[in-house]
């Protein structure tokens, strides 16, 4: 089971990179021109993230360098370590549903501090990739069509985030330790 997950991880990208252009070529799509056409948007997308990420990185950097983050982590550590969970990832779970740029910045910070191949780095990577920014999605989607009474949707979104977060931690503990 866990060997299978590792195998999927190793093969997923190479297989996709081969299969998509191959299938397209069979369908007579001019693959290279199409690639260049789509790739143009990538630059702009990355540049658009800069203000968000700089703003959030600075705030998180202040929070960490001042020692406030360590204090928070130490407060939570005894509870989490009983389950083998590194306390460092918990603030990420609080940030993830609220701010996409904030949690991306926090994940980046964890990866930089602890290394991408540490358990904390792998957990942060998995958590960041496996749920979305609930509050942002809700605001954008409902805001765009003028919905003000959101019914039970926020509850469902946040409960889902808790499950996603817990699943990410358990899966990482099983696969990587």
């Amino acid at each position: 089971m866990f060997a299978a997950i590792t195998t999927i991880s190793i093969w997923a990208i190479p297989v996709i990179v081969v299969l998509i252009p191959l299938y397209a070529a069979i369908k007579k799509v001019p693959v290279y021109e199409t690639f260049v056409d789509g790739a143009k948007d990538g630059f702009q997308t990355a540049i658009n993230i800069i203000p968000h990420l700089v703003g959030m990185m600075v705030a998180i950097s202040i929070f960490r360098e001042s020692g406030a983050l360590d204090a928070l982590v130490n407060l939570l550590r005894p509870l989490l370590e009983r389950f083998g969970i590194p306390g460092e990832v918990l603030p990420l779970s609080l940030l993830r549903p609220i701010t996409g740029a904030g949690s991306l910045a926090f994940t980046t910070d964890l990866i930089r501090e602890h290394g991408p191949d540490s358990l904390i780095g792998r957990m942060a990577s998995t958590i960041q990739g496996s749920t979305d920014t609930t509050l942002y999605v809700l605001t954008v989607y409902f805001g765009a069509v003028g919905i003000r009474k959101i019914s039970y949707s926020l509850k469902v979104g946040l409960l889902t985030d808790i499950v996603g977060f817990t699943a990410a931690i358990i899966i990482c503990l099983l696969v990587f330790t």
């Binding site: 997950i5 999927i8 190793i10 780095g121 990577s125 960041q128 990739g129 496996s130 990410a168």
Partner: peptide
């Protein structure tokens, strides 16, 4: 999860894509 893979590459991961499988499983759960 492309963004995360890019960040892992940036910080010198030995295997940046190793979290694809775990992310896939976690995302299926959520």
């Amino acid at each position: 999860p492309t963004t995360i893979i890019a960040i892992r590459i940036n910080f010198g991961s030995a295997n940046p894509a190793e979290i694809v499988g775990t992310t896939l499983l976690a995302t299926a759960c959520s």
